[in-house]
Design a protein around this nucleic acid. Structure first.
Length: 477
RNA sequence: GUAGAUAUAGCUCAGCUGGUUAGAGCGUCGGAUUGUGAUUCCGAAGGUCGUGGGUUCGAGCCCCAUUAUUUACCCCA
């Protein structure tokens, strides 16, 4: 006999876990829909040509590929085998499991461009797969909940992302969170302020690690990558600006002006948004847009600015983001980010639809679950939806209970009849173990008298009711 | 891909310097109570000590290999 097992990085979810996960999904879905996002689902499998090249070399390594059906090796030649996996792969696998929800979404938008009404707002809650090494908060199969808007570059979308992040986390009871926001334009300006020395991506990769490896670690890495010491000094002066959201914007502005950074101008946006923006920031796109997002949040009634932090060190990989970027962490839990996102100006370009601006973000349900568990914040309990268990002792009383069972279900009370005429003790243990709040006792005595005994498990109180009044009494409570 | 840790009952784990028949708690099942759960008492079942080899009079314990799991790095949700 073999030991049963499941692939590493995957999990089974028992009834209690599913109930808790559904609660998380419900909070997210309600929030997304209240902001006008419509649901979309895409296939588990995508063509590999859609997936490869979108996540960098490392991302391609982490894709799960699916062998072709039938004789998958029929096109493989001896040459291919000698050349190695790169030559082999396209001949044996043409499909793969989706790696995220953003790329399939971009593919969908490009394919359906003619029928979509823009701006197009969609949300998507589906599993994704990554052939990663599993560890804390990292799985090979996990759910993402994405919401994206494409076809508008209004900064209202960015502001609403912050609103949705806060609403979901508050709705889950995860009140102690920090939403970090930055802008790729700010990062680019910082790079320019350093005189354009070294490679831009090296710089961002290094500063993204600031909170992890510290200032000394980052300096060391930058020195190794060919940045000079005075440059690194300037960099830290800019990165470590302190103060409120506004103060950091002003201090970075001063830094950019001092360093002689060429203003990159303001991206055209709607007139009223521009009118709200503070004048002195208008020369740098990143700073300006961050100020506008803050103003839109204020106007929307957002009051949690203590939980929104402008963090110039936030870089979020370097994938396709071009504007604002976001990342959310739950405080006092050792867990990676539970949400992240940003604006991309050309996501659908590689699918033949250039110039479509979009902005979106994603929640990691599995990490939210782990955070709620670590902080002991779950309010959803229970192994079963059953609210009422009918117990019985013999075939006759069991049959006599069937009309009542149907009546309870018709009245919207999830109910079950214990299937076997077991000892009453066993039936009660069943109800207790599953957290069923009500037990109806239907024995020969009750059946003969046309009554039932109802016990409220939590209090232990019992009372006798005529059969015909049971549903009315229960629904009245 | 790099580095470390762990592997003993269904679950969580003890097991001393290598020494008789490998233990506990929880869970499961049965009984005390032939019609009452969560509390109490009694009892039972449940083990190839991950796998293979080695050292030894003797290995759960020491050595080697191997597999699985897990943590950290890289990257990410």
């Amino acid at each position: 006999m073999q030991k049963p097992s499941i692939p590493k990085g995957t999990r089974d979810f028992g009834p209690a876990q599913v109930a808790r996960r559904q609660h998380i999904f419900n909070v997210i879905r309600r929030t997304f829909e209240s902001f006008g996002f419509a649901p979309l689902e895409t296939p588990t499998l995508e063509n590999l040509s859609v997936l490869t090249g979108k996540y960098g070399d490392e991302g391609d390594q982490l894709l799960f590929k699916v062998l072709n059906s039938g004789d998958f090796a029929k096109d493989v030649t001896a040459d291919d085998l000698a050349t190695g996996s790169k030559a082999l792969l396209p001949k044996v696998a043409e499909k793969g499991l989706r790696y995220d929800l953003t790329v399939p979404f971009a593919r969908y938008v490009a394919m359906n461009r003619g029928t979509l009404t823009f701006p197009f707002k969609r949300y998507q809650m589906q599993p994704v797969w990554r052939a990663d090494r599993p560890q804390r908060g990292r799985y090979r199969e996990f759910y993402q909940c994405d919401a994206d808007v494409v076809g508008t570059d209004s900064l209202l979308c960015e502001a609403e992302i912050v609103l949705m992040m806060a609403q979901v986390l508050d709705g889950l009871g995860l009140h102690d969170f920090t939403i970090k926001i930055n802008h790729r334009g700010v990062l680019r300006n910082i790079y320019q302020a350093l005189g354009g020395e070294g490679r831009e991506t090296d710089l961002f990769v290094a500063i993204d690690k600031l909170d992890k490896i510290g200032r000394d670690g980052v300096s060391k890495e930058l020195l190794e990558r060919g940045f000079s010491e005075p440059t690194i000094e300037t960099l830290f002066a800019l990165l470590t600006v302190e103060g409120t959201y506004e103060e950091k914007l002003q201090r970075l502005l001063a830094g950019f002006v001092t360093a002689g950074v060429e203003p990159d101008g303001v991206r055209p946006t709607t007139a009223d948004v521009e009118a709200d923006s503070p004048e002195p920031l208008a020369n740098y796109r990143g700073l300006t847009e961050l100020a506008q997002v803050r103003d839109l949040l204020t106007a929307s009634g957002f009051r949690q600015f203590d939980r929104l932090e402008f963090d110039p060190t936030l870089a979020r990989g370097l994938s396709y983001y071009t504007g604002c970027i976001f990342e959310v962490k739950i405080n006092n839990v050792q867990m990676g980010s539970v949400s992240g996102g940003g604006r991309y100006d050309n996501l659908t370009g590689s699918f033949g639809l250039p110039g479509v601006s979009g902005v979106g973000f994603s929640f990691g349900v599995d990490r939210l679950y782990d955070c709620l568990e670590a902080l002991d914040l779950f309010t959803v309990t229970g192994e079963t939806p059953t609210r009422c268990l009918i117990t019985h002792f013999d075939v006759a009383s069991g049959r006599a209970a069937l009309p009542l069972l149907a009546e309870l279900r018709a009245a919207g009370i999830p109910s079950e009849l214990y299937p076997d005429a077991s000892k009453l003790q066993k039936q009660f243990k069943y109800a207790d173990a599953k957290g069923i709040p009500l037990v109806i006792i239907m024995g020969p005595e009750e059946a003969a008298a046309g009554v039932v005994k109802i016990k409220i498990m939590q209090t232990g109180v019992e009372r006798v009711l005529p059969m015909g009044e049971v549903v009315a009494a229960l629904t009245a409570e």
